[in-house]
Computed example of a mutant assay.
Amino acid sequence: MPGLGDGEVVHYGELGCWVVADPDAVRAALCERRLSSASLARCLDLYMSEAARARNGSLEEILTRWLVQLDGTDHAELRKQIGPALSPARVRALEPEVERIVDDALDQLEAAEERDAVALVSDVVPARVMGRLLTLPEVDVAMLYRWTRAISAFLDGVYRQDAAEEARRALGEMCDRLAAAGADRERPGGIWDHLGDEKYRLATASMMLFGGLETTASLLGSVLHHVVTVPGAAASVRAEGDSAAHAITEQVLRTHPPLSHVARVADSDLEIQGERVPAGGLVLLSLNGRDVIGEPHAPALGSRYTHAFGHGAHYCLGAALARTEAVVLLRRFCTRFPHAASEEARLARHENSTYLRLAGLRLVLGAAG
Protein backbone atom coordinates (compact mmCIF):
# COMPACT_ATOMS: atom_id res chain seq x y z
CA MET A 1 0.00 0.00 0.00
CA PRO A 2 1.21 3.55 -0.61
CA GLY A 3 2.68 5.56 2.23
CA LEU A 4 1.12 8.61 3.81
CA GLY A 5 3.46 11.53 4.36
CA ASP A 6 2.81 14.99 5.77
CA GLY A 7 0.18 16.79 3.72
CA GLU A 8 -0.31 13.79 1.45
CA VAL A 9 -3.64 12.38 0.30
CA VAL A 10 -3.51 8.72 -0.64
CA HIS A 11 -5.83 6.90 -3.02
CA TYR A 12 -6.47 3.24 -2.20
CA GLY A 13 -7.72 2.09 -5.56
CA GLU A 14 -8.66 -1.43 -4.45
CA LEU A 15 -10.97 0.05 -1.81
CA GLY A 16 -12.22 2.94 -3.89
CA CYS A 17 -11.38 5.59 -1.30
CA TRP A 18 -9.01 8.43 -0.45
CA VAL A 19 -7.38 8.96 2.97
CA VAL A 20 -6.58 12.42 4.36
CA ALA A 21 -4.48 12.63 7.56
CA ASP A 22 -2.86 16.08 7.58
CA PRO A 23 -4.60 18.02 10.41
CA ASP A 24 -5.00 21.23 8.39
CA ALA A 25 -6.40 19.36 5.39
CA VAL A 26 -8.78 17.39 7.63
CA ARG A 27 -9.98 20.57 9.31
CA ALA A 28 -10.69 22.18 5.94
CA ALA A 29 -12.38 19.03 4.61
CA LEU A 30 -14.71 18.87 7.61
CA CYS A 31 -16.07 22.26 6.53
CA GLU A 32 -16.10 21.53 2.78
CA ARG A 33 -19.68 21.64 1.53
CA ARG A 34 -18.85 19.55 -1.52
CA LEU A 35 -18.05 16.66 0.83
CA SER A 36 -21.34 15.10 1.90
CA SER A 37 -21.84 13.39 5.25
CA ALA A 38 -24.14 10.77 3.68
CA SER A 39 -21.30 8.28 3.57
CA LEU A 40 -23.10 5.11 4.70
CA ALA A 41 -25.18 4.83 1.54
CA ARG A 42 -22.03 5.28 -0.57
CA CYS A 43 -20.17 2.63 1.44
CA LEU A 44 -23.06 0.23 0.89
CA ASP A 45 -22.99 1.02 -2.84
CA LEU A 46 -19.29 0.18 -2.92
CA TYR A 47 -19.09 -2.81 -0.62
CA MET A 48 -22.47 -4.56 -0.19
CA SER A 49 -24.52 -6.51 -2.70
CA GLU A 50 -28.05 -5.44 -3.62
CA ALA A 51 -29.43 -8.69 -2.20
CA ALA A 52 -27.70 -8.10 1.14
CA ARG A 53 -28.98 -4.53 1.27
CA ALA A 54 -32.51 -5.75 0.61
CA ARG A 55 -32.27 -8.28 3.46
CA ASN A 56 -31.13 -5.58 5.87
CA GLY A 57 -33.15 -2.63 4.65
CA SER A 58 -34.40 -1.63 8.09
CA LEU A 59 -30.80 -1.19 9.24
CA GLU A 60 -30.02 1.18 6.40
CA GLU A 61 -33.32 3.02 6.84
CA ILE A 62 -32.53 3.93 10.47
CA LEU A 63 -28.80 4.59 10.17
CA THR A 64 -29.11 6.89 7.16
CA ARG A 65 -31.45 9.06 9.27
CA TRP A 66 -28.83 9.57 11.96
CA LEU A 67 -27.95 13.24 12.30
CA VAL A 68 -24.34 12.50 11.37
CA GLN A 69 -25.51 11.23 7.95
CA LEU A 70 -27.58 14.31 7.10
CA ASP A 71 -26.63 17.57 5.40
CA GLY A 72 -28.24 20.84 4.48
CA THR A 73 -31.71 21.74 5.71
CA ASP A 74 -32.47 18.27 7.12
CA HIS A 75 -29.33 18.41 9.24
CA ALA A 76 -29.81 22.01 10.37
CA GLU A 77 -33.46 21.55 11.38
CA LEU A 78 -32.89 18.33 13.30
CA ARG A 79 -29.78 19.71 14.99
CA LYS A 80 -31.79 22.76 16.09
CA GLN A 81 -34.37 20.46 17.71
CA ILE A 82 -31.81 18.25 19.46
CA GLY A 83 -29.49 21.05 20.64
CA PRO A 84 -31.46 22.08 23.76
CA ALA A 85 -31.42 18.47 25.03
CA LEU A 86 -27.60 18.59 25.23
CA SER A 87 -27.06 22.29 25.89
CA PRO A 88 -24.30 23.41 28.29
CA ALA A 89 -26.98 24.36 30.84
CA ARG A 90 -28.56 20.90 30.66
CA VAL A 91 -25.17 19.23 30.98
CA ARG A 92 -24.34 21.34 34.04
CA ALA A 93 -27.66 20.37 35.60
CA LEU A 94 -26.84 16.71 34.95
CA GLU A 95 -23.37 16.90 36.56
CA PRO A 96 -24.51 15.94 40.11
CA GLU A 97 -26.09 12.82 38.63
CA VAL A 98 -22.86 12.06 36.75
CA GLU A 99 -20.96 12.40 40.03
CA ARG A 100 -23.28 9.92 41.74
CA ILE A 101 -22.93 7.46 38.86
CA VAL A 102 -19.13 7.78 38.93
CA ASP A 103 -18.96 7.32 42.70
CA ASP A 104 -21.12 4.19 42.49
CA ALA A 105 -18.87 2.76 39.76
CA LEU A 106 -15.75 3.49 41.82
CA ASP A 107 -17.40 1.73 44.79
CA GLN A 108 -17.86 -1.33 42.60
CA LEU A 109 -14.27 -1.11 41.39
CA GLU A 110 -12.91 -0.95 44.92
CA ALA A 111 -15.06 -3.90 46.06
CA ALA A 112 -14.20 -6.16 43.13
CA GLU A 113 -11.67 -8.97 43.25
CA GLU A 114 -10.60 -8.37 39.66
CA ARG A 115 -10.41 -4.62 39.23
CA ASP A 116 -10.92 -4.11 35.52
CA ALA A 117 -11.59 -0.39 35.15
CA VAL A 118 -13.03 -0.86 31.66
CA ALA A 119 -15.69 -3.37 32.65
CA LEU A 120 -16.52 -1.73 35.99
CA VAL A 121 -16.08 1.98 35.31
CA SER A 122 -15.48 3.28 31.79
CA ASP A 123 -18.20 1.07 30.29
CA VAL A 124 -20.64 1.52 33.16
CA VAL A 125 -20.59 5.30 33.60
CA PRO A 126 -21.71 6.31 30.08
CA ALA A 127 -24.28 3.52 29.98
CA ARG A 128 -25.93 4.78 33.15
CA VAL A 129 -25.67 8.43 32.09
CA MET A 130 -27.33 7.73 28.75
CA GLY A 131 -29.92 5.54 30.45
CA ARG A 132 -30.77 8.50 32.66
CA LEU A 133 -30.84 10.94 29.73
CA LEU A 134 -33.04 8.71 27.56
CA THR A 135 -35.29 7.74 30.50
CA LEU A 136 -34.63 4.01 30.19
CA PRO A 137 -36.43 2.38 33.14
CA GLU A 138 -33.66 -0.19 33.61
CA VAL A 139 -30.08 -0.18 32.39
CA ASP A 140 -28.63 -3.56 31.46
CA VAL A 141 -25.07 -2.48 30.69
CA ALA A 142 -24.07 -5.72 28.95
CA MET A 143 -27.16 -5.61 26.73
CA LEU A 144 -26.60 -1.98 25.74
CA TYR A 145 -23.03 -2.72 24.68
CA ARG A 146 -24.10 -5.86 22.84
CA TRP A 147 -26.29 -3.60 20.73
CA THR A 148 -23.82 -0.77 20.20
CA ARG A 149 -20.88 -3.02 19.47
CA ALA A 150 -22.85 -4.99 16.90
CA ILE A 151 -23.58 -1.68 15.19
CA SER A 152 -19.95 -0.51 15.44
CA ALA A 153 -18.77 -3.82 13.95
CA PHE A 154 -21.10 -3.27 11.00
CA LEU A 155 -19.99 0.33 10.49
CA ASP A 156 -16.38 -0.88 10.58
CA GLY A 157 -17.06 -3.57 7.96
CA VAL A 158 -20.22 -2.89 5.96
CA TYR A 159 -19.15 -5.52 3.41
CA ARG A 160 -19.66 -8.33 5.98
CA GLN A 161 -23.08 -9.95 5.73
CA ASP A 162 -22.84 -11.51 9.20
CA ALA A 163 -22.08 -8.09 10.71
CA ALA A 164 -25.03 -6.53 8.86
CA GLU A 165 -27.49 -9.16 10.06
CA GLU A 166 -26.30 -8.94 13.67
CA ALA A 167 -26.44 -5.13 13.57
CA ARG A 168 -29.97 -5.25 12.13
CA ARG A 169 -31.15 -7.44 15.00
CA ALA A 170 -29.35 -5.31 17.58
CA LEU A 171 -30.70 -2.04 16.21
CA GLY A 172 -34.22 -3.50 16.13
CA GLU A 173 -34.02 -4.47 19.79
CA MET A 174 -32.51 -1.10 20.68
CA CYS A 175 -35.25 0.82 18.89
CA ASP A 176 -37.96 -1.29 20.52
CA ARG A 177 -36.55 -0.46 23.96
CA LEU A 178 -36.13 3.22 23.11
CA ALA A 179 -39.66 3.44 21.69
CA ALA A 180 -41.04 2.04 24.93
CA ALA A 181 -39.00 4.55 26.95
CA GLY A 182 -40.25 7.41 24.80
CA ALA A 183 -43.88 6.31 25.08
CA ASP A 184 -43.68 5.83 28.86
CA ARG A 185 -41.83 9.03 29.72
CA GLU A 186 -43.34 10.65 32.78
CA ARG A 187 -42.21 14.24 32.49
CA PRO A 188 -43.27 16.34 29.50
CA GLY A 189 -40.55 18.65 28.29
CA GLY A 190 -37.86 15.97 28.71
CA ILE A 191 -35.35 14.89 26.12
CA TRP A 192 -37.88 12.93 24.03
CA ASP A 193 -39.64 16.17 23.16
CA HIS A 194 -36.44 17.34 21.44
CA LEU A 195 -35.80 14.34 19.21
CA GLY A 196 -37.68 15.41 16.10
CA ASP A 197 -40.80 14.06 14.46
CA GLU A 198 -41.63 10.36 14.30
CA LYS A 199 -39.58 9.93 11.14
CA TYR A 200 -36.37 10.82 12.98
CA ARG A 201 -37.16 10.20 16.66
CA LEU A 202 -35.94 6.62 16.97
CA ALA A 203 -33.04 7.25 14.62
CA THR A 204 -31.92 10.17 16.77
CA ALA A 205 -32.39 8.30 20.05
CA SER A 206 -30.44 5.29 18.75
CA MET A 207 -27.66 7.56 17.48
CA MET A 208 -27.42 9.27 20.87
CA LEU A 209 -27.32 5.96 22.71
CA PHE A 210 -24.72 4.56 20.32
CA GLY A 211 -22.48 7.64 20.43
CA GLY A 212 -22.96 8.19 24.14
CA LEU A 213 -21.73 4.66 24.84
CA GLU A 214 -19.17 3.68 22.20
CA THR A 215 -17.17 6.88 22.00
CA THR A 216 -17.51 8.03 25.61
CA ALA A 217 -16.56 4.62 27.02
CA SER A 218 -13.42 4.76 24.89
CA LEU A 219 -12.58 8.26 26.13
CA LEU A 220 -13.08 7.29 29.79
CA GLY A 221 -10.91 4.21 29.43
CA SER A 222 -8.15 6.24 27.80
CA VAL A 223 -8.12 9.02 30.42
CA LEU A 224 -7.97 6.42 33.21
CA HIS A 225 -5.11 4.67 31.44
CA HIS A 226 -3.34 8.02 31.17
CA VAL A 227 -3.50 8.87 34.88
CA VAL A 228 -2.36 5.42 36.03
CA THR A 229 0.59 5.22 33.61
CA VAL A 230 1.90 8.77 33.09
CA PRO A 231 4.09 9.94 36.00
CA GLY A 232 2.67 12.97 37.76
CA ALA A 233 -0.66 12.96 35.91
CA ALA A 234 -2.81 11.88 38.85
CA ALA A 235 -0.94 14.23 41.20
CA SER A 236 -1.65 17.15 38.89
CA VAL A 237 -5.39 16.36 39.00
CA ARG A 238 -5.33 16.21 42.80
CA ALA A 239 -3.42 19.51 43.00
CA GLU A 240 -5.11 21.47 40.23
CA GLY A 241 -8.55 19.86 40.04
CA ASP A 242 -10.70 20.42 36.99
CA SER A 243 -8.10 22.46 35.08
CA ALA A 244 -5.68 19.51 35.03
CA ALA A 245 -8.52 17.06 34.33
CA HIS A 246 -9.62 19.17 31.36
CA ALA A 247 -6.03 19.33 30.05
CA ILE A 248 -5.61 15.56 30.26
CA THR A 249 -8.96 15.02 28.55
CA GLU A 250 -7.97 17.30 25.66
CA GLN A 251 -4.58 15.60 25.31
CA VAL A 252 -6.21 12.18 25.12
CA LEU A 253 -8.77 13.45 22.60
CA ARG A 254 -5.92 14.66 20.38
CA THR A 255 -3.72 11.58 20.60
CA HIS A 256 -6.20 8.72 21.13
CA PRO A 257 -9.61 9.87 19.85
CA PRO A 258 -12.36 7.26 20.24
CA LEU A 259 -13.15 7.47 16.54
CA SER A 260 -10.21 6.98 14.19
CA HIS A 261 -11.83 8.64 11.19
CA VAL A 262 -15.01 9.96 9.64
CA ALA A 263 -16.13 9.38 6.06
CA ARG A 264 -17.33 11.87 3.49
CA VAL A 265 -18.52 11.56 -0.13
CA ALA A 266 -17.62 14.01 -2.87
CA ASP A 267 -20.78 15.58 -4.31
CA SER A 268 -18.75 16.92 -7.22
CA ASP A 269 -15.19 16.81 -8.49
CA LEU A 270 -12.78 18.54 -6.12
CA GLU A 271 -9.13 18.69 -5.18
CA ILE A 272 -7.68 17.95 -1.74
CA GLN A 273 -4.00 18.71 -1.16
CA GLY A 274 -3.34 18.45 -4.89
CA GLU A 275 -5.14 15.09 -5.26
CA ARG A 276 -8.18 15.02 -7.54
CA VAL A 277 -11.23 13.34 -6.01
CA PRO A 278 -14.07 12.70 -8.48
CA ALA A 279 -17.77 13.02 -7.72
CA GLY A 280 -18.86 9.96 -5.75
CA GLY A 281 -15.38 9.47 -4.28
CA LEU A 282 -15.30 8.17 -0.70
CA VAL A 283 -12.93 10.21 1.50
CA LEU A 284 -11.76 9.05 4.93
CA LEU A 285 -10.66 11.90 7.20
CA SER A 286 -8.26 10.78 9.92
CA LEU A 287 -8.97 12.21 13.38
CA ASN A 288 -5.64 11.13 14.89
CA GLY A 289 -3.10 12.05 12.21
CA ARG A 290 -2.53 8.45 11.06
CA ASP A 291 -3.29 6.40 8.00
CA VAL A 292 -6.63 4.85 9.03
CA ILE A 293 -6.20 1.90 6.66
CA GLY A 294 -2.58 0.89 7.12
CA GLU A 295 -2.14 0.65 10.92
CA PRO A 296 -5.22 1.97 12.70
CA HIS A 297 -4.10 0.66 16.10
CA ALA A 298 -0.55 2.03 15.94
CA PRO A 299 0.28 4.93 18.29
CA ALA A 300 -1.35 8.08 17.03
CA LEU A 301 0.75 10.94 15.74
CA GLY A 302 -1.67 13.35 17.30
CA SER A 303 -2.75 16.72 16.04
CA ARG A 304 -2.51 20.37 16.98
CA TYR A 305 -6.32 20.27 16.85
CA THR A 306 -8.87 18.26 18.77
CA HIS A 307 -10.78 16.65 15.91
CA ALA A 308 -12.35 13.93 18.05
CA PHE A 309 -15.72 15.68 18.03
CA GLY A 310 -15.48 16.85 14.44
CA HIS A 311 -15.48 20.45 13.27
CA GLY A 312 -17.86 22.85 11.62
CA ALA A 313 -21.55 22.16 11.08
CA HIS A 314 -21.26 18.55 12.26
CA TYR A 315 -19.47 19.29 15.53
CA CYS A 316 -20.70 16.67 18.02
CA LEU A 317 -23.66 17.81 20.11
CA GLY A 318 -22.63 15.40 22.88
CA ALA A 319 -19.11 16.83 23.25
CA ALA A 320 -19.88 18.78 26.44
CA LEU A 321 -21.45 15.73 28.11
CA ALA A 322 -18.54 13.44 27.17
CA ARG A 323 -16.00 15.95 28.47
CA THR A 324 -17.98 16.35 31.69
CA GLU A 325 -18.00 12.60 32.27
CA ALA A 326 -14.23 12.45 31.70
CA VAL A 327 -13.45 15.38 34.00
CA VAL A 328 -15.73 14.14 36.79
CA LEU A 329 -14.22 10.65 36.56
CA LEU A 330 -10.65 11.95 36.67
CA ARG A 331 -11.37 14.22 39.63
CA ARG A 332 -13.11 11.53 41.69
CA PHE A 333 -10.74 8.70 40.73
CA CYS A 334 -7.48 10.57 41.38
CA THR A 335 -8.71 11.87 44.73
CA ARG A 336 -9.98 8.51 45.87
CA PHE A 337 -7.16 6.31 44.55
CA PRO A 338 -3.98 8.44 44.55
CA HIS A 339 -1.69 5.41 44.25
CA ALA A 340 -3.55 3.47 41.54
CA ALA A 341 -1.40 1.75 38.92
CA SER A 342 -1.96 -0.49 35.94
CA GLU A 343 -1.19 -4.21 36.13
CA GLU A 344 -0.78 -4.33 32.36
CA ALA A 345 2.44 -3.54 30.55
CA ARG A 346 0.80 -3.12 27.15
CA LEU A 347 -2.32 -1.27 26.08
CA ALA A 348 -4.67 -3.70 24.32
CA ARG A 349 -7.53 -2.51 22.13
CA HIS A 350 -10.53 -4.27 20.66
CA GLU A 351 -10.24 -5.30 17.04
CA ASN A 352 -12.14 -2.51 15.38
CA SER A 353 -10.33 -0.10 13.09
CA THR A 354 -12.97 2.64 13.31
CA TYR A 355 -14.08 2.69 16.96
CA LEU A 356 -11.01 2.44 19.15
CA ARG A 357 -11.49 1.24 22.72
CA LEU A 358 -9.55 -0.56 25.43
CA ALA A 359 -10.04 -4.29 25.80
CA GLY A 360 -9.40 -4.02 29.54
CA LEU A 361 -7.50 -2.08 32.19
CA ARG A 362 -6.67 -4.09 35.33
CA LEU A 363 -5.65 -1.89 38.22
CA VAL A 364 -3.87 -2.09 41.56
CA LEU A 365 -5.55 0.61 43.62
CA GLY A 366 -3.15 0.91 46.53
CA ALA A 367 -4.18 2.78 49.65
CA ALA A 368 -7.32 4.86 49.26
CA GLY A 369 -7.08 8.65 49.61
Results as ranks from 00 to 15, higher is better:
R185H: 12
E113R: 14
R254N: 10
Q251C: 02
E275M: 12
S353N: 12
R332C: 04
K199L: 02
A85L: 04
A367I: 01
E214D: 14
D140N: 14
L329I: 03
E99I: 00
G157F: 00
R132F: 00
T148D: 12
V327H: 07
R168E: 13
M208T: 00
K199V: 01
E14C: 03
L63V: 15
G310H: 10
A76C: 01
V283G: 11
T148S: 15
A345L: 12
V68S: 15
G281R: 05
V277W: 06
A28T: 11
L44N: 07
R238E: 05
E250G: 04
E240M: 01
A142M: 01
Q108W: 01
V230M: 09
V68G: 04
D6H: 15
H75F: 05
D104E: 13
D24A: 15
A85Y: 05
L78E: 12
R146T: 09
L287N: 14
L287A: 13
H226G: 01
G172T: 13
Y305L: 06
T215D: 08
A298M: 07
L259M: 12
E173T: 02
L133D: 00
S353G: 13
T148Y: 08
E8L: 09
E240L: 05
R290V: 06
G310Q: 09
G212W: 00
A93D: 13
L94Q: 07
H261Y: 15
S353Y: 04
E271G: 00
V10K: 14
L44D: 10
G189R: 04
L259I: 11
H350L: 14
L171T: 07
Q81N: 11
L15Y: 15
